[in-house]
């Protein structure tokens, strides 16, 4: 991989740690924008969709990660040297 591709990858990594979560959040933001611009829309519709949607996506992601990690290695992991 050349240095430019590596640099681009590093910068994108700032926003896309878990690609699936990032894409789901982007889709949610698009839906919220559509709802906010709908004819019958009120602000609270979009607020509820934005907040509840983000929290549900985060909950699903951390539960899935916890399930995967605890299945593959039972017990607490040692201190991390990952950033």
């Amino acid at each position: 991989m050349n240095p430019i591709a590596r640099a681009v990858r590093a910068v994108l990594g700032l926003f896309f740690d878990d690609g699936k979560l990032a894409l789901e959040v982007l889709a949610l933001l698009a839906c919220s924008a559509l709802v906010a611009n709908g004819e019958l829309a009120q602000s609270w519709h979009s607020i509820v969709l934005l907040i509840a949607g983000t929290l549900i996506l985060l909950l699903e992601n951390v539960m899935r990660t916890a399930r995967t990690v605890t299945r593959s290695s039972p017990g607490p992991s040692p201190p991390s040297s990952q950033p």
Binding site: F15, D18, L58, P76, S77, P79
Partner: peptide, 16 residues
């Protein structure tokens, strides 16, 4: 959300 996800997993003891 990336920071929060990692912090939740670390606080829960899933990630070191």
């Amino acid at each position: 959300i990336r920071w929060l996800r990692k912090a939740v997993l670390r606080s829960a003891g899933v990630v070191a």
